[in-house]
């Protein structure tokens, strides 16, 4: 069970890391953060049955669901022979000659509330550090909820926020809250830096818009609004060491406690090929008073946006029902929290 042969490079700066990615592109090179995804994947040929992996699912050519059909060739995002799928299937990806280990980039390990009240979390921040931050627990609660429920304490101690998002899994427990909280990812490459909205990052299971020579450096969240709150719920068979069957993250802002909805974002995990922003919820809720009936409609809208498949974690129909139930429950929780801590 030893790992395949590779060399490990240890950059001191992000620029150096990018330069290493460029230099060794032809031989196969991958970034290494906590290694809780990558080192498992590199061992996979030897242990092909490792469970915490999603086998993915599909969208239709028109972007609609084919909920019980396996994706592969008809998936517009990664057709067989398409650039994304080719990148993933490239043998250099599966057996890289070089790993660029980011463990010395201490500058990317911080959690900072900036002068304008916004939050900046470095990509190498461990999952464990996130729920320990009182600011994140208070104002970006859904992110704290997601991190606190990822894997096990040992996974959280090693795994990083950047690794969880960059790995682009549909059930990623911090990616789903990051979308609901309107996070922005900063990607640094050899020719500069760009930002991508969290919901635009993943393109399919394990696939993202990140270029092979880019490093995810930080995730930035807008300042908290008054009368707003968020929450994430991970539905899973066990409390630890389990990938979610359904994950729902809700962020909601009211004009005033009990008053009309100013803005809302609901994100769904494990019910599509990527984490999904449930866009229809905003259309139902905007400007409405969040009573039981309206919230129920919003939850139905969220369920309509889900695109699940049947797999060993749950049937597609069950997942859709759970999206509705959990969305309603979380919306109510957040409305109540706003009422008690306006």
């Amino acid at each position: 069970m030893i790992l395949p042969r590779f060399d490990v490079l240890v950059p001191e700066t992000v620029d150096q890391a990018c330069a290493m990615l460029v230099e060794h592109a032809d031989e196969g090179v991958r970034l290494l953060a906590g290694g809780t995804d990558l080192l498992v994947d590199l061992r996979r040929p030897i242990i092909p049955y490792h469970v915490p992996r999603c086998d993915g699912c599909t969208t239709h050519p028109e972007g609609k669901v084919a909920s019980t059909v396996r994706c592969e060739p008809s998936d517009p995002l990664m057709p067989a022979g398409g650039p994304l799928r080719a990148a993933l299937e490239d043998p250099r990806h599966a057996a890289p000659k070089y790993l660029v280990s980011l463990h010395k980039l201490n500058q990317l390990k911080s959690i900072q509330v900036l002068g304008d009240g916004s939050l900046k979390v470095g990509a190498l921040t461990t999952i464990a550090a996130i729920p320990r931050s009182p600011e994140i627990r208070r104002s970006w609660t859904a992110l704290a909820d997601g991190a606190a429920n990822l894997g096990s304490p040992l996974v959280r101690n090693r795994g990083t926020l950047g690794g969880n998002i960059a790995n682009a899994r549909p059930a990623a427990d911090t990616a789903v809250p990051a979308i609901a909280l309107d996070g922005t990812l900063t990607l640094q490459g050899p020719s500069g830096t760009r930002t991508v909205a969290a919901e635009d990052f993943a393109r399919g299971p394990g696939l993202s818009v990140m270029k092979p020579d880019e490093v995810l450096t930080e995730v930035h969240f807008p300042p908290p609004l008054p009368h707003a709150g968020s929450a994430y719920y991970k539905l899973a068979n066990r409390k630890a060491l389990e990938i979610s069957t359904v994950g729902v993250a809700v962020w909601l802002a009211l004009e005033k406690p009990g008053g009309p909805v100013k803005d809302v974002r609901v994100a769904l995990g494990a019910v599509g090929p990527t984490p999904i922003l449930a866009e229809s919820v905003g259309e139902v809720l905007a400007g409405k008073t969040p009573d039981e009936k309206v919230l129920g409609k919003a939850a139905m809208a969220a369920a309509g946006d889900a695109r699940p498949i049947d797999d060993h974690r749950g049937a597609a129909w069950y997942r859709v029902q759970m999206v509705e139930l959990l969305t309603l429950r979380l919306l109510k929780t957040v409305v109540e929290r706003i009422a008690s801590h306006p």
Partner: peptide, 13 residues
């Protein structure tokens, strides 16, 4: 000081 699974940690790290 941090509980760490040593099987998924490279010696170099």
């Amino acid at each position: 000081g941090v509980a760490t699974f040593s099987c998924l940690t490279l010696a170099i790290q």
